[in-house]
Each structure stands twice: as structure tokens, then as C-alpha cells.
Design a protein around this nucleic acid. Structure first.
Lengths: 172, 172
DNA sequence: TATTGTTATACTCTATAACTATA
DNA sequence: TATAGTTATAGAGTATAACAATA
């Protein structure tokens, strides 16, 4: 028989990362494990669907989705920061996408070190389709949550992001 | 100069995955991108510290942390479900940890196909140290969030986890 | 027939670090 | 000196799928 895929694993069972936390553990840890579980749950499913439906991967989709909202293109260092991965990775993903005709490196006049990564027409068409589908997926996943719940969660996570980032840069 | 590591990237700048969302995007998508950003922020830092301080990786730590709360060991299929990865991966990680003397496969009488993965004494000592340190990190990251905020967030994410899981198993 | 776990394969993504070329 | 991007290297993690042993 075929082994279970992560997407299948996410579905039909209750235990997850969180299960390792015991009641005596502190709130912060349990909170973190719950965040991680939610993320893995959704992310596994998204990765699986991107592969099945569009023969692509999450980082590739992320890069193109970033570009979708930057009509004038982005520098690779910008992409690196936005996607929270190192420079060399962006080079690799860009190389692939360029080979597939999805993006192109456009030289700029004022700084000859850098170039702008832009979607081609083909890339733009393609990522628009994927992004629309992606958003539908997310809406389905979270659809049973009331708008108020989603808004509250959004704001609470904004606070979390802020304090976490503060902590991380404090000790840098 | 040395390229920035993900941990460094996470720190000193504002833009992130979320930045790709524009105001017209729907709430669910923006919520998802924010969750993802929070997770990446913390996860990158944890991965980096596990590597630096303990020469290990997140999946390896996760597996050992799971075992810490299962004194009688766990079957590999259990670990697979808990960690939300496929069977073969658990075999690989277990092989590594067994080679390092951190865990052992213990045969059980009633089902000769499976064995229980247990922490060795060495592994138990080691993971206890790591888990304590890991919890301290998390507490620091989230430390500036009030207890009420953390509790609210915890419950809200519980709801999210529930509805997401329902959605995912509904369409299975 | 179904399950547990292993193996083999191939691939993506990743960090690190040294490097080139600009600025 | 600092920045933008590339390259080389090496490794981890992953899915897929076929497989053996057992249930």
C-alpha cells in the first residue's frame, strides 16, 4: 500500500505537534506549538495542492506572488528580505523561473550591480491563476471562522509579530 | 562580506511575506500570511539556535521532544502522525538519532512488524537540556505579550485549528 | 487485504562562505 | 568599505513509490 502523504496525515487524526505539551508547560510554549500546528496543517495542504494542480512549489509561488504586487519588479535583495531566505536561494529560484519563462532579470541604469526581477506576460497570467486559486483554498480552510474571529485573530497576531520582532532585534 | 542569514533577515527589517497582501485582499488571506510570517520569524530563529547551540535540527529536536512525554516510547507511525510528515522521513531521522545513541528501537511482543522508539538515557538527558533552553527562547520571544493576550490567542487559534481541520477532512 | 516500517530515488530548498562587480 | 548578486558546496528534509514482513 501507498504511504500516507502529509496532506492525508493532517486530515484524519487528532494528535499533532501540540500533543507533546503537557498541562504543566508554560503558556508561551503551548501557544507556539499551536501556531506551528495550524501553520503545518495549512502549509502541507497548500504545498500538496500547488504540486498537484500547478506542478510548482511554495517558494516558487511565493516569489511570483510577491512580484504580482510589484508591477515595476523587485530587486533580489528585496525578495530575499520579504521571503525571509538568503540571497543565494533567491538566485536559484529565479534561475528556475527564468528558464521557464515566468520571470526575467531587467537591468537598471542607475546601479549596474543589481537588476529588477519582473514577471513576464506568461508569468503574470500564470501567477494570477494560481493566486486566485490559492486564495479560494484559504477562504475555504478558514471559512467557518466568523469575520469577528478572523479580525480578532489578525490583530492579536499583529501584536505577536511586533513583540517577537522586537525581542529578536533587541538581542541582535 | 557574508550574506545575511534568515535569522538576521528576520530581525532588522519590516517587510515580510505579508507585505504582498494589498488592502483589497480578503481577510482570510491576510490572516494566513500573518500567521505564516509569525511562524517563519520564530522558526528561523529556533532552527538557527538549535544548529548553533546544539548542532541539531528542528525535526530531530521535535522527534526527541515528542518522546520526552512518552516514557514508554512511540511507534513510528505515531511519530509520523504527530509530526505531520511521511513514514520514510521518520525512518531517516530515527536512523540518525539511533546512530548518535539518542534513541533506540525496542521490539514489542504483540506486533512483530513495529517497534517502539525510546529515548536512551543519554538522549533523555540531552533532550531535557534542549527542551528547557527551547522553552526559555519561546518565553523570551513572546514575553512582552500579556498573559491575557496569550490566552486569547491560544483559544482563538484553537478555533482556527478546529475549523481548518474540519475543512480538510470534509473534502477528503 | 491492510498495516508497519524500510529502502531507493530524485529533487527542492537551505545555509554557509567565498567570490566578482560595482557603489 | 559596503552592497548586489553569483557560485560552489554540502546537507537536510521531503515526497513518491515499490517492497518485505506481518497482521
Amino acid at each position: 500500500m501507498i504511504a500516507m502523504s502529509p496532506a492525508m496525515i493532517s486530515k484524519n487524526i487528532t494528535p499533532d505537534l501540540e500533543t507533546r505539551a503537557v498541562p504543566e508547560d508554560h503558556l508561551s510554549l503551548r501557544l507556539w506549538l499551536r501556531i506551528l500546528t495550524c501553520t503545518n496543517l495549512v502549509e502541507n495542504e497548500i504545498r500538496s495542492r500547488l504540486r498537484t494542480d500547478f506542478s510548482t512549489t511554495l517558494p516558487r509561488f511565493d516569489l511570483m506572488a510577491q512580484l504580482l504586487h510589484s508591477p515595476n519588479g523587485m530587486k533580489m535583495s528585496d525578495l530575499s528580505r520579504h521571503m525571509m531566505v538568503t540571497n543565494g536561494n533567491i538566485t536559484g529560484i529565479t534561475d528556475q523561473l527564468e528558464k521557464e519563462g515566468m520571470v526575467e532579470r531587467v537591468k537598471v541604469a542607475n546601479d549596474r550591480r543589481s537588476s529588477l526581477i519582473c514577471l513576464t506576460m506568461k508569468g503574470k497570467r500564470h501567477v494570477k491563476k494560481m493566486a486566485a486559486q490559492h486564495e479560494t483554498w484559504i477562504q475555504t480552510f478558514f471559512g467557518d471562522l466568523s469575520e469577528k474571529s478572523r479580525k480578532d485573530l489578525f490583530h492579536a497576531l499583529g501584536e505577536l509579530k511586533l513583540v517577537t520582532r522586537t525581542q529578536l532585534s533587541d538581542k541582535a
